[in-house]
Design a protein around this nucleic acid. Structure first.
Length: 207
DNA sequence: GCGACGATGGGCT
DNA sequence: GCCCATCGTCGCA
């Protein structure tokens, strides 16, 4: 029988964590633990890279197209998952932020695996641990996150996916750069430094 | 280690 | 029909 592994109530991040300016949330997610429950077992990783996407004015944000079937969840409640499909083969995990009705989300770009490395290893065959989760589509593959995980509440009694308190990342360990992979996006959105990452955990990744 | 490039399909104009 | 919030593989150093 499967063993239930709910989030520890005192560690689960509340909705209020996400109902903040999306750039603050992206910064503050560094060091937090992304948890995937699968068959009653936990797999998790510390978030080391995240990007903010904010509003219909942000021409890198999907919400630039306005309210559509795809972007609808971004207009929903803070703490909801936004998982979308791109490049014909990749799933991306975002978390909705700010006030309901205003489209904003944080893209989780990279994690360092903490729990469930056996399962992750199975999900990333013939890939070295260093590259298991060092990209947004890699971590969704590693944690088996796909379109069925779109629109989930990650705060109120989450079932398969949530975020817990983790380690403290000091400001001196946070790098801030333009967002990755934007291509044809005009300024100022192309260069606005809404990507946050830390290399403090790099030494912990086995090769 | 690094740069080039093809794969591949939904969303939107 | 064009555009992607990308990845893995290949060739080369």
């Amino acid at each position: 029988m499967t063993q239930l592994v709910p989030p520890a109530p005192d560690k689960l991040l509340p909705c209020s964590f996400y109902q903040q300016p999306v750039t603050d949330v992206a910064r503050n997610l560094l060091g937090k633990l992304l948890v995937r429950s699968h068959d009653g077992l936990r797999a998790s990783g510390t978030i080391i890279e995240a990007e903010a996407y904010r509003g219909e004015e942000d021409l890198a944000c999907h919400a630039k197209a306005g309210y559509t079937r795809r972007t609808a969840v971004m207009y929903g409640k803070a703490g909801t998952s936004y998982v979308y499909f791109t490049y014909g083969m990749h799933w991306m995990l975002n978390i909705v932020c700010e006030d309901t009705g205003f489209p904003a989300a944080v893209l989780i770009r990279a994690i360092v695996v903490v729990e469930g490395s056996d399962w992750v290893s199975d999900n990333r065959p013939s890939v070295s641990p260093k590259h298991w989760c060092d990209g947004p589509a890699k971590l969704t593959r590693a944690l088996q996150i796909d379109g069925t995980h779109n629109g989930l509440d990650l705060c109120i009694q989450p079932d398969q996916l949530w975020v817990e308190e983790g380690i403290k990342i000091d400001d001196s360990q946070v790098n801030q750069t333009p967002r990755i992979g934007l291509g044809n996006v005009p300024e100022p959105w192309l260069s606005i430094p809404w990507r946050f990452h830390t290399s403090i955990l790099n030494t912990l990744i086995p090769r």
